[in-house]
């Protein structure tokens, strides 16, 4: 993957989005450069997940500009977005209960060459090895999260939207996922991350966007995080 000559970034400008009648995204503007890990932090209901759903085309009622490299994503039907090499790990993992672990793993079609092999995936997430026949949702929460990440890595996606991977997980598992994210970064993957856990966010990311009421209200580089931690905590406190 690191051999790719040109890797596009994601550029979101003035993105608006609606659930039915209610207007949830109010001019979201952010960008993720190739090879970066960028987080969106903010309270529940701020519009982080909705932004991801709008980028992936799951949320159809949207307006504004979303570009990946020089492709206008808004103009694409939802199933063409992943074919650009964008992978989506949804909130609450989205593991299918009517599919086995292997079927879950093999479900997303390979969109680009250079995806991880099953062996590499099992090396990265040893918990998944030997569990192939199990019903996907019988795995523990942490294992389901690994499965959700693993199935995207198989596809060769080099840009991943990762929605709250640590939610509800034990600290040991969170560490394991943080370690795997660093490995992915070394492989040259670009990641947009939704995270409420500041500690986790600071351990992995390059930059942080603070999202409030459907738009970005602040931006902090990771090296400046410690200096600005009080300000950030006021954004996150209820």
């Amino acid at each position: 993957m690191s051999t790719d000559a040109v890797k596009p970034g994601l550029d979101v400008r003035e993105l608006h989005g609606w659930y039915g009648e209610s207007h949830v995204l109010h001019g979201m503007t952010l960008n993720v450069r190739a090879g970066e890990i960028v987080t969106m932090i903010g309270r529940n209901g701020a519009g982080k997940t909705t932004t991801m759903r709008a980028v992936m085309g799951i949320l159809r009622k949207r307006d504004g500009q979303v570009r990946y490299g020089d492709v206008d994503i808004i103009a694409l039907p939802a199933h063409k977005v992943p074919r650009l090499g964008i992978g989506y790990v949804p909130e609450e993992r989205g593991i299918f209960s009517s599919l086995s672990v292997d079927e879950n793993l093999m479900l997303p079609p390979v969109t680009r060459p250079g995806g991880m092999s099953i062996e590499e995936i099992h090396a990265l997430f040893p918990n998944l090895a030997g569990r192939g026949g199990t019903i996907g949702t019988r795995l523990s929460g942490g294992e389901q999260q690994m499965l959700a990440i693993a199935r995207i890595l198989r596809t060769g996606a080099n840009f991943i939207l990762l929605d709250e991977p640590t939610e509800g997980l034990a600290p040991v598992i969170v560490d394991q996922i943080a370690a795997s994210l660093r490995i992915l970064k070394e492989r040259g993957l670009t990641i947009l991350l939704v995270e409420q856990n500041l500690e986790f966010a600071s351990a992995t990311a390059d930059r942080h966007y603070v999202v409030e009421l459907g738009k970005v209200v602040d931006e902090v580089a990771n090296h400046a995080l410690a200096a600005n931690i009080t300000r950030l905590n006021t954004y996150l406190s209820v």
Binding site: M56, G57, I58, P77, A78, H79, K80, V81, P82, R83, Y88, P90, G94, F96, S97, S98, L99, E103, M106, L107, P108, P109, T111, T155
Partner: peptide
């Protein structure tokens, strides 16, 4: 089969399956 897995998954959550690149329509 693989096609069957798409079908079962789409029965559960069609928009996620589409977000994985499967032409659900």
């Amino acid at each position: 089969t693989r096609l069957g897995a798409y079908l079962r998954a789409a029965t559960e959550n069609p928009s996620l399956v589409q977000a994985f690149g499967v032409n659900v329509p």
